[in-house]
Computed example of a mutant assay.
Amino acid sequence: MSSPERPQLNRRTVFAGAGTVGALAAAATLLPAARTDTAAVPAADAGQAGQDHGRYQETAHVRQYYQTAKL
């Protein structure tokens, strides 16, 4: 009985596998963060719907900043 031969791993295969694993790890890290960010946006907008429609409002805090930023 002859033993089955195992395929030889070459550098190209190893580096391609390492690159794939790295890309998958990066995607796995970013996807849960993106999912929580998009889920939080509708909840935050629901309270302000109809008030300012996302437009710029000059508040006392903004006026104070512009006063201190003048040269």
Results as ranks from 00 to 15, higher is better:
14 V>S: 12
6 R>C: 01
71 L>P: 04
25 A>V: 08
45 D>V: 03
61 H>V: 09
52 D>A: 11
23 A>M: 14
65 Y>C: 10
63 R>Q: 13
32 P>S: 09
9 L>D: 11
1 M>I: 09
42 P>H: 13
24 L>P: 00
46 A>N: 06
52 D>I: 02
50 G>P: 00
4 P>Q: 08
60 A>K: 07
32 P>H: 09
35 R>L: 05
48 Q>I: 06
32 P>N: 12
45 D>H: 08
21 V>E: 04
65 Y>S: 05
22 G>H: 05
24 L>K: 01
29 T>M: 12
2 S>T: 09
17 G>V: 05
65 Y>I: 07
54 G>S: 00
8 Q>Y: 12
59 T>S: 11
33 A>C: 03
17 G>E: 07
22 G>T: 12
58 E>L: 06
36 T>Q: 11
38 T>R: 06
20 T>Q: 12
6 R>K: 13
64 Q>E: 13
21 V>Q: 03
49 A>V: 00
49 A>T: 01
22 G>C: 12
32 P>A: 11
25 A>H: 00
62 V>A: 01
5 E>D: 14
64 Q>I: 00
54 G>V: 03
38 T>H: 08
66 Y>I: 14
51 Q>N: 08
26 A>E: 06
2 S>R: 04
39 A>T: 02
4 P>F: 01
67 Q>P: 00
57 Q>H: 04
30 L>P: 01
60 A>V: 10
46 A>C: 02
40 A>V: 01
56 Y>F: 15
37 D>N: 02
12 R>W: 15
65 Y>T: 08
39 A>Y: 00
4 P>L: 05
15 F>V: 09
47 G>N: 13
71 L>H: 13
52 D>H: 09
47 G>C: 08
2 S>D: 06
29 T>D: 12
12 R>S: 15
23 A>Y: 10
26 A>F: 13
41 V>S: 06
15 F>H: 14
58 E>Y: 02
53 H>F: 13
4 P>A: 09
64 Q>K: 12
28 A>R: 01
12 R>G: 15
3 S>V: 15
65 Y>N: 02
1 M>R: 05
71 L>A: 11
10 N>K: 15
62 V>K: 10
66 Y>G: 05
64 Q>L: 03
26 A>S: 06
24 L>G: 11
7 P>G: 07
37 D>Q: 05
25 A>S: 01
2 S>V: 11
59 T>I: 05
58 E>R: 07
5 E>K: 14
33 A>M: 03
11 R>T: 13
39 A>G: 02
44 A>M: 08
9 L>P: 01
51 Q>Y: 13
37 D>C: 07
22 G>L: 14
71 L>F: 10
37 D>W: 06
53 H>L: 09
45 D>S: 06
34 A>F: 12
16 A>C: 09
63 R>M: 04
30 L>G: 07
13 T>Q: 10
2 S>W: 09
16 A>S: 14
14 V>R: 15
33 A>Y: 04
15 F>G: 04
12 R>N: 14
70 K>I: 10
11 R>E: 15
47 G>R: 10
70 K>D: 10
62 V>M: 02
29 T>H: 13
41 V>A: 02
48 Q>M: 07
7 P>M: 04
57 Q>L: 07
55 R>F: 12
34 A>C: 07
6 R>G: 04
68 T>N: 11
8 Q>N: 09
35 R>Q: 06
48 Q>S: 07
29 T>L: 14
23 A>L: 10
